[in-house]
Amino acid sequence: MAFDRQPHLISDLVELRPATAEDFDALFAVAGDPLIWEVHPAHDRWQESVFRRFFADGLASGGMLVAIDRESGAVIGSSRYDFGRAEPDEVEIGWTFLARSHWGGRYNGEMKRLMLDHAFTGVSRVMFMIGETNIRSRRAIEKVGGKLTDRRHHAEMAGQPVVHVIYTIDRSGSAG
């Protein structure tokens, strides 16, 4: 059975559903907040032209999900499954952003729990690639059980070198 990178996942708190082209305006309304991106390596993603490329890449990936607050029905962010940098029997969860109104609570953890539970129906390990200096995202992954590995990914963003660290969570809950 092939892994479904665009499932429809629901909990009491949040709903994750496949992204469509019609989601651009609602997602940009969230992503247009510069403070969401201030510690992210792509700190200019709040700009419409930059976000438009991010969004198009997400749709093209075949793994982009839209996050919806179940109580209000509002779009609050997105995340994605991808195999591009993953090792065998592994999937990456990433490209996640969340409205600041939903920071510091249960939303990110619940999104990750839903995505992890689904991922473990098809793979044994999930990886998360996070900018080395993005302490906010690193702490959030640690809160859901991510273990820092010795794997690194070197890239260039806006002409600057960027190092990403890799966290993993195994189906068994142990470090990868």
Rank of each mutant, 00 (worst) to 15 (best):
F55T: 10
F55S: 07
D57G: 13
D57R: 12
D57I: 01
A60G: 03
A60Y: 01
A60C: 02
A60W: 00
L65A: 04
L65E: 04
V66S: 04
V66H: 06
A67R: 08
A67I: 09
A67Q: 12
A67F: 12
I68K: 11
R70N: 15
E71C: 12
E71S: 14
E71L: 12
S72P: 08
S72T: 15
S72C: 10
G73N: 11
G73Q: 11
G73V: 09
A74Y: 07
I76D: 11
G77I: 09
Y81G: 04
Y81M: 05
D82H: 13
F83V: 12
F83R: 13
R85H: 14
A86L: 00
A86P: 02
E87T: 01
D89L: 04
D89H: 02
E90Q: 15
E90K: 02
T96D: 02
F97E: 06
L98F: 07
L98T: 15
A99N: 15
A99E: 10
R100L: 14
W103E: 07
W103K: 05
G104D: 11
G104C: 06
R106N: 12
R106L: 13
R106M: 12
R106E: 12
G109P: 07
G109L: 09
G109S: 12
G109F: 01
G109Q: 08
E110Y: 10
E110N: 13
R113T: 05
M115L: 09
L116E: 00
D117K: 09
H118L: 07
A119K: 02
A119I: 03
F120M: 06
G122L: 02
G122T: 10
V123H: 03
V123W: 01
V123C: 01
S124Q: 14
S124W: 02
R125E: 13
R125P: 03
R125W: 05
R125S: 11
M127A: 15
M127T: 08
F128W: 07
F128Q: 06
G131C: 06
E132S: 15
E132N: 14
T133W: 11
T133R: 15
N134P: 05
I135P: 00
R136T: 08
R138D: 07
R138H: 06
R138C: 05
R139Q: 15
A140I: 07
A140R: 03
A140Y: 09
E142D: 01
E142W: 00
K143Q: 13
K143V: 01
K143M: 08
K143E: 03
V144P: 00
G145P: 02
G145Y: 03
G146M: 02
G146D: 00
K147P: 01
L148P: 04
L148C: 01
L148Q: 00
T149C: 08
D150V: 06
D150G: 13
R151F: 14
